[in-house]
Design a protein around this nucleic acid. Structure first.
Length: 553
RNA sequence: GCGCCAGUAGCUCAGUUGGAUAGAGCAACGGACUUCUAAUCCGUAGGCCGAGGGUUCGAAUCCUUCCUGGCGUGCCA
């Protein structure tokens, strides 16, 4: 709809240039069309005349008049007006809008999906929590946002890969193995001193017990081998937990990428060599450094420490180079906001190796503050009230959980109230949206009971939809595809959540004011078509974001 | 000190990437179930968009200087 109008405006502008009524020959890269907040200003509005004021050296309103004259007689609009400082406001013919309903009924579960990203490969790497413990609430937000970003991109036609990077190398893995081993020795009756920097949590004891019952005791191996065995066992078990949690959230990854594998394949050394050959790295104080300050970082960064071990940055360099080798046009990393200091060095590394820094987009996920009944819920790792993601999902349910995580822009902090999220009341926006869907389904059941036949394309008389609320609903439905595209291109899935709430509100209001099933069959059919279009859009949006669209509530 | 993010109604937040009179949900107050599900709707009230300066036809949005909160600033992960 919008695109058609945009084309018409472009054509009009071109005509003005050829007939000489406008002279600058200036063509904006894109004709800006917006939906005015105030519906009296029409369906769409453009500021074109104002942007042309400077090159044309004429008053905006004069230019607008010229453009409007050229636009007369096109088949889309029934009213074109000049307003304010030079806006051109368009009101489309109602029958134009009603075509959207045909489109929705016809496309059904594919309505809202597009091909704007066709041919582009994007990778979204998210969660990537260390396999040293269960996922917590903060991981949950990153998981849902990452998954939703991926889903929205897919809906816009991009080829998307979801990837989980497993940090299964390095110090914390040693600590994990050591911690399990010590607990295992305890179970074997030894008295051990548990170090401060070990993992204290109870699940380590569980892992030790499981090791003991499945693998037996560890007596005839060296310390190093024992730690190694425990680490590997722990990683596998914990990854099983993580995968199960994510699965209960409806999230699955296309690819699990092991850091250790990067080392085993020699890729880290290979990439470090490349950096050296390009003269980007240097040795100092017995360590190997990357000169990231050449590309805007405020400090150079260590790749290999003076004791010969690698930093995480070293494997991250190799990992990201490997991502681009796989042919992605865009790589998205979803990180906790506390890692933001890492971005400059990553971008510097990419620039040094000849990749445009924009090819990596880092989405920072701000903190989640847990609340219960309005009171902050303090989580100490030491204290007993540490709450895992699994417990949250079990308590509030998958749909509510996902909805709450998507309700905010990801770079603003999120207050998550456990009581509110599980409340099945009007305070809870999840049910508000789902209820709208269930209501349409209920109308359909009633329609079927009273013998109304299923809708046939072509037998619907849209002129029966003459109420202003009905036209407004149709316009809202027409906005869904562009909302999805906008959410995809800006990596902002929360836009769809707000769209859903707006649509549900409009529907509930309409439902309360007017009956769908009325005496007149033609009106009934037209209204059934309208509310079912609402149902389809609600279902598509919910489904896209991994939530259910219940038929009854 | 430096860097990143945020600051919009009493609370939690949107604001279509610079557009017209700044919006929604809670909370408050007053109404609507004999009618397709009241997990709903209708109405009232609520604002110096943190503060100052700048850019222009036009700023919550862009540039700048401050103020407040969070996070970061390791040869930690």
């Amino acid at each position: 709809m919008k695109d058609q109008l945009r084309l018409a405006i472009r054509a009009a502008l071109k005509q003005c240039y050829t007939d000489g009524s406008l002279t600058s020959g200036e063509f904006p890269k894109e004709v800006q069309l917006e939906i005015p907040k105030n519906s009296e200003h029409g369906d769409f509005s453009t500021n074109l005349a104002m942007t042309l004021a400077k090159p044309e050296r004429k008053a905006p309103r004069k230019i607008a008049e010229t453009l409007v004259a050229a636009l007369q007689g096109n088949s889309l609009c029934d009213k074109i007006e000049i307003a304010g400082p030079g806006f051109i406001n368009f009101r489309l013919i109602a029958t134009c809008w009603y075509k959207v309903l045909d489109q929705i009924m016809q496309q059904d579960e594919t309505y809202g999906y597009s091909q704007v990203g066709a041919g582009k490969k994007i990778q979204v790497e998210f969660v990537s929590a260390n396999p040293t413990g269960p996922l917590h609430i903060g991981h949950g937000r990153g998981a849902v946002v990452g998954d939703a970003v991926a889903a929205v991109l897919q809906a816009a036609g991009f080829e998307v890969q979801r990837e989980y990077y497993i940090n299964d190398a390095g110090n914390q893995i040693l600590t994990l193995g050591r911690s399990i081993l010590l607990r295992l020795r305890e179970l074997q009756g030894e008295i051990v001193e548990f170090p401060e920097d070990g993992y204290q949590a109870a699940y380590i004891v569980d892992l030790a017990a499981k090791y003991r019952s499945e693998q037996g005791e560890l007596n005839d191996v060296t310390e190093a081998e024992a730690i190694e065995l425990c680490s590997r066992f722990g990683i596998v078990e914990i990854l099983k937990w993580i995968e199960a949690d994510l699965k209960s959230f409806g999230i699955h990854f296309d690819h699990w990428f092991s850091e250790q594998n990067l080392y085993d394949q020699g890729m880290v050394d290979q990439e470090l060599l490349k950096l050296k050959e390009k003269g980007l790295s240097f040795e100092e104080d017995g360590a190997l450094w990357l000169r990231t300050t050449d590309y805007g970082d405020d400090k150079d960064r260590v790749l290999i420490k003076s004791d010969g071990s690698y930093t995480y940055f070293a494997s991250d360099v190799a990992y990201h180079m490997e991502k681009f080798d796989r042919g992605f046009d865009q790589v998205i990393d979803v990180w906790g906001a506390d890692h933001h200091g890492y971005i400059p060095r990553m971008k510097a590394m990419l620039a040094g190796l000849g990749h445009p820094p924009e090819a990596l987009e880092v989405l920072l996920i701000q903190m989640v503050n847990l609340h219960r009944d309005g009171q902050p819920y303090i989580m100490g790792k030491r204290s007993g009230n540490f709450i895992t993601l699994k417990e949250v999902i079990d308590e509030v349910g998958r749909d509510a959980c996902r909805f709450f995580f998507l309700m905010r822009r990801c770079d603003s902090q999120l207050d998550f109230d456990l009581e509110l999220a599980k409340q099945q009341s009007s305070d809870n926006p999840v049910y508000y949206v789902q209820y709208a869907h269930a209501r349409v389904c209920s109308i359909n059941r009633n329609a079927a009971e009273s013998g109304i036949e299923p809708l046939q394309p072509g037998q619907i008389d849209y002129n029966r939809l003459e109420l202003t609320e009905e036209l407004a609903l149709v316009k809202q439905l027409a906005r869904f595809p562009e909302t999805v595209v906008g959410a995809a291109l800006s990596y902002e899935p929360h836009r769809i959540i707000f769209y859903l709430q707006d649509l549900a509100a409009q529907f509930h209001s309409y439902y309360n004011r007017h009956r769908v099933l009325v005496d007149d069959p033609a009106t009934t059919r037209a209204r059934l078509c309208l509310v079912n279009s609402v149902r389809i859009v609600l279902a598509n949006a919910l489904q896209m974001l991994g939530m259910s669209a219940p038929e009854r509530m």
